[in-house]
Design a protein around this nucleic acid. Sequence first.
DNA 1: CGTCATCTTGATTACGCTCAAGCTCCGTGG
DNA 2: CCACGGAGCTTGAGCGTAATCAAGATGACG
Lengths: 212, 212
Amino acid sequence: MTAQIVTFARAAQADARSFPGATIAYGPGEEIYAQAEETDLIYRVTSGAVRTTRLDSDGRRQIGDFYYAGDFFGLEAGPEHRFSAEALCESQVQVFKRTTLAMADDTAGVERTIWTATARELERTREHLMMLGRKTAREKVASFLHDLADRQGGEVQTLVMGRQDMADYLGLTIETVSRMLTQLQAEGLVTFTGCRQFRIGNRQAMTRLVAA
Amino acid sequence: MTAQIVTFARAAQADARSFPGATIAYGPGEEIYAQAEETDLIYRVTSGAVRTTRLDSDGRRQIGDFYYAGDFFGLEAGPEHRFSAEALCESQVQVFKRTTLAMADDTAGVERTIWTATARELERTREHLMMLGRKTAREKVASFLHDLADRQGGEVQTLVMGRQDMADYLGLTIETVSRMLTQLQAEGLVTFTGCRQFRIGNRQAMTRLVAA
DNA sequence: CGTCATCTTGATTACGCTCAAGCTCCGTGG
DNA sequence: CCACGGAGCTTGAGCGTAATCAAGATGACG
């Protein structure tokens, strides 16, 4: 977020255009690409976490998705990004140039990887869609925690994002998210130890609540 | 919807598995593939219109998208369909077998076409997501009519789907959709001539209302 | 022309939003 | 080491939008 970090990142990104595959470091809140920026690069999270965000003219905000180590992002059909991407915490991001990849030795392999990533992304987006369209606030928040636990594995879960990001992902307000978290905890479905750490208390009840 | 039509379609679909590229006719409401069915086929609308639907255990329904002549559908990453697909009206659908396409002469061309279709689909789904997450009922309904007019072109627009389908696409109830249509018409933004035909009355106001 | 599905309208309810305080957790400086 | 300050989170009260429940109106089709 400091001027130095931003300057460093800009310089590194410029390099990435000539040397695809370069890894760039971003600090919390730092922008990786902007809405309406050209889409000639493809990204992969090496460490940390990234969110994609869309801001409309009224300032309403929607988060497209969160990406963790190993995930590709920045895949788009059109010539311009419809969402921007920002790091959630200290993160390392690998950058590939599309046109360079097209000249790779194993073109077929590269293309298959990109297609698979795109299709997986589509699938996740459809799940997200289902959630936004037809779930209650309570179900949305429960799904969010459940999915996170699924992805991360292990017992104790850590939230890399704040309440506002959760709200903008779920199509809710920050207050509603907070209330639902309190409610779920009161019912023993989850236990929070600090506002960014939790454990699933009742996995069965949780899964039932989330069930498609 | 009659037993004969269903029987015919089943038989035709069985054929399509051995003869990819075959065109099958479906009647209104008829199922093209089901949720949890295997995903070895890819489809393209030749004429008519198709919707993809997801039904959860409580009977809540979400429509993924509507597809018209020329559109591909049925593209998925996993081995099972997460949505089902049904014809909205008398429709012709072309069916391709994935594994057969992989052996085509112009494999690269085929793959590019599929990737492009997938990426386009992803983009549409993201727009849909944005709408579900952050738009009001009024804006959702206006967007729906606006997009339809954009896609179809021309002056007089025809709705191939009923109010329930619109509601399930927009994450609203049928009553709310109806009220918003009445409201938009009262304000002169659109004019309905029968419940499935309309013209955009004030394109400027409409675009403003829809603006991302 | 009658029947049934679809669509519209009305009255009421409820879920999530808004506005407004507090609280908690950290980092900073006295 | 504790006081101060600020950001982020929680809680509360009241409101508004869209859902629900319930009749009617319209329209398509036999």
